[in-house]
Amino acid sequence: MTQPFAIAVAPNGARRTKADHPRLPITAAEIARDAAEALEAGAAMIHLHVRDAGGAHTLDVDLYREAMAAVRDAVGDRLVVQVTTEAVGRYQPSEQIAVIDALRPESVSIALREILPEGEDERAPASLFERMEKAGMLHQIIIYEAAELDRLDALCTRGVLPGGPLAVLAVLGRYTEAGATEAEFEAFIAAGIARHQWMLCAFGPLETEFMERAATAGGHARVGFENNLWLPRGQLAPSNAAIVSATAGVIGDSQRGIASADDLRGLWREPSAPVPADKASASGTRPAKPDLSHGVSG
């Protein structure tokens, strides 16, 4: 059966401010407003970042609880509510793990290279994933290049990560003028990302075009002001909901339909499958460190 197309809205991110777009949500009330609008436009999930009093990215538990409560008041359970653990050069893996344990959110996004830096002790992250699995938490692993798919497989094979398919977010581009590129997308497809429950995010004004390609290839979409401020044909988006609506329009004749939050929950809770034998060995390529000067997406 063809999977419905799930759209996640990422309304703010860790770096942009109202100087980038006056409608970028910062407060809990603004995030809840955008959540409700995005739901009506077709979103199944909201990806949460929160800011401190000075507007800086934070993993503060109390601020997260305030934003999560505001979103739930606005939309109930009609959106999956996902929190980020993005480090932004500020947080260590132990702090990222601590916020997950304190919040016990419905869903969480975790960058592979942040939570499991190569060559470092894997026991604490492995224990975290075991706890999340037991709690039924919907974890999504962020990867920034195709070579990380081989590392995911190796970690699954060794039992550090749960058996696949995993929920994976592939990131195209960074906060640069070039944004997402064709070569990045093709590399993820060639590396077999379709063996996972995969979602795509793409920096820059070609976001909707890449989401159309993801939909055709069986993936899902994460869109919004965190990664892009523009609608197709170069118009500045008036809101996050407008970007979600444009994304919902790209499925065309694919017969996929738009996923609800419950659809997405079901997709991410499908039984684990063994890693294919031909994908069980790790790549020799070491992923680069995050480009903190331009930012990544978490």
Rank of each mutant, 00 (worst) to 15 (best):
A126L: 05
E86I: 12
R158A: 15
V108C: 01
Y91G: 10
A102Q: 13
V99E: 02
R174P: 00
G76Q: 08
E114M: 07
P105H: 04
A187H: 05
A87C: 09
E186P: 00
L161S: 05
V168D: 10
L149I: 14
P93Q: 03
V61S: 12
S127A: 15
Q140W: 03
A70W: 13
E145Q: 12
S109P: 07
A178N: 03
D101E: 15
S94H: 13
L138I: 08
V88Y: 11
F129R: 10
T85E: 06
Y175C: 04
T85F: 12
Y144P: 06
V88C: 14
V75H: 05
A147Q: 06
L169V: 08
A180L: 07
Q140E: 15
G119D: 00
P125S: 09
A126C: 09
P165E: 11
A70I: 13
E148G: 05
T176L: 01
E177W: 01
V171M: 06
Y144G: 05
E106V: 07
A187P: 05
D60M: 12
T85P: 07
P117F: 09
P105E: 12
S127I: 09
G164I: 02
Y175M: 05
E182W: 02
K134H: 14
E182N: 12
V61P: 03
V61I: 14
P162F: 04
M68C: 10
R151C: 00
E122I: 11
D73S: 14
P162N: 07
A187I: 02
H139K: 10
L112E: 02
F129Y: 15
D150R: 15
V108D: 01
